[in-house]
Simulated scan of single mutants.
Amino acid sequence: MTISLRHARVRYGPVEALHGVTLAAPGPGLTLLLGRNGSGRTTALRALAGTVALSGGAVVWDGVDVTRVPADRRAGRGLCLVPERQAVFGSLTVRENLELGASDPEAALDAYPQLRPLLPRRAGTLSGGEQRMLALSRALSTHARVVLVDDAAQGMSPSVAARTYDLLAALHACVVLAEQRPPPALRGRPAVVYELRRGQVVFAGEPGELERRSGPV
């Protein structure tokens, strides 16, 4: 199972955000898209999900060109995107958000038991870290084939962040994480790493190669 970008270009009006990016995320396993703000990592994730259109190149999933397949149909085929912002439905309760991803919210709560006392609350009233847990618990309960997550541990305490990365690494899925830098909790785990800078891939390899190239992270 592999999802990939092939010479992908994305434009936002007159600005080109991706300049012919090629990358492949195999699964089951972890792929990291690293880069500072403005590097193109989030755009690459959204291009894989179909929430932004390509102006050139292709998205290929399991050998099939899905460039023109809309985001909702990619989701129906087993792709789950957890964006950095607006990842939950703020007007719905925590329970209602969970039920959108799984008929049994109890199973979803296994990932983050901290959400149990929050079930009756509106998701929009939760803290940033709580909203992140809610969005990810939905994703973890859908048994998706491809899971795309932008800034997975945003707003979380170190212990909850470490648990989050453990849960994502344990998925039997193609997991693609867009991060500013390699998460310490994933150190030593096998992964494919791409570093983006100004809309281009400047490194592709394994975490150890990146560390030798850039110094300890």
Rank of each mutant, 00 (worst) to 15 (best):
E106P: 10
E106G: 15
E106V: 12
A107C: 06
L109R: 05
L109C: 09
L109G: 06
L109E: 02
D110V: 14
Y112T: 03
P113N: 13
Q114D: 14
L115Q: 04
R116Y: 05
L118C: 08
L118V: 02
L118E: 08
L119I: 01
L119A: 03
P120A: 03
R122N: 11
A123D: 02
G124N: 06
T125L: 15
L126F: 09
L126Y: 01
G128P: 08
G128A: 14
G128Y: 08
E130F: 11
R132T: 01
L134K: 04
L134A: 10
L136K: 06
L136Y: 03
S137V: 03
A139M: 09
A139F: 04
T142H: 05
T142Y: 03
T142D: 04
T142W: 10
A144L: 12
R145K: 11
R145S: 07
V147H: 06
V147M: 08
D150E: 10
D151K: 12
A152D: 01
A153H: 00
A153F: 04
Q154T: 10
Q154M: 14
G155A: 13
G155D: 01
G155C: 11
V160H: 12
A161F: 05
A162N: 10
A162K: 10
A162Y: 05
R163F: 00
T164W: 07
Y165E: 09
L167T: 00
L167V: 00
L167D: 04
L168M: 08
L168K: 04
A169R: 14
A169D: 14
A169Y: 10
A169T: 01
A170Q: 08
A170G: 06
A170H: 13
H172P: 11
H172Q: 08
A173Y: 05
V176W: 01
V176S: 01
L177P: 01
A178G: 10
A178K: 03
E179W: 08
E179F: 06
Q180P: 00
Q180H: 14
R181S: 11
P182F: 14
P182N: 14
P182W: 09
P182T: 13
P183R: 12
P183A: 15
P183Y: 09
A185Q: 11
A185G: 10
L186W: 12
L186I: 08
L186D: 01
L186S: 06
R187H: 15
R187V: 13
G188Y: 07
R189Y: 13
R189T: 05
